[in-house]
């Protein structure tokens, strides 16, 4: 074995997930018929519950276009795509010397953009939907009491 090129490019979680999907990992409920190894299924299981599972090519392109003005390193963009931080405190460890480089207002703007462009991971309800559910629950309870 000869290593020709140890680093021939980074992949986002989304790209690896798309690759495993194209091999048929998502279409085979039995997990025996598709030509996907058990170890690949483990990676698939990890990625499918991560932020990558709802992302699309368009949303990633849009994110890359819109974050150009923030002057982020490639690794930082990659990490934001993989984690999808939804608050300032979550983005803080990803970006090196966040406050010094950008200032708190710009960071807030960036987080807003991330929330807008990248879809939330599965199992995490969008904040407005959760609020709606709360509103719905209250009249129900009142009805129960009057009944």
């Amino acid at each position: 074995m000869k290593i020709q090129e140890p680093n021939a490019g980074a992949l986002t979680n989304f790209e690896v997930l798309e690759f495993l999907r194209s091999k048929g990992a998502s279409k085979d409920p039995t997990r025996v018929i598709a030509p996907v190894a058990p170890s690949e299924f483990k990676v698939y299981d990890y990625l499918v519950q991560s932020a990558a599972s709802n992302q699309t090519k368009q949303s990633i392109h849009e994110f890359l276009n819109r974050c150009e003005k923030y002057d982020l390193a490639k690794a930082e963009k990659l990490n934001i795509l993989n984690i999808r931080p939804s608050s300032v405190v979550e983005i803080d460890p990803i970006i090196e010397e966040c406050e010094k480089r950008m200032g708190s207002e710009v960071v807030e703007e960036l987080v807003e953009m991330v929330i807008q462009v990248l879809p939330p991971p599965p199992g995490q309800v969008k904040p407005d939907e959760a609020a709606d559910e709360d509103n719905e629950e209250i009249p129900d309870q009142e009805q129960m009491e009057t009944n």
Partner: peptide
């Protein structure tokens, strides 16, 4: 977290 690597193998 994922990278591509080019390998030559006999």
């Amino acid at each position: 977290m994922f990278f591509l690597s080019v390998i030559e193998h006999t």
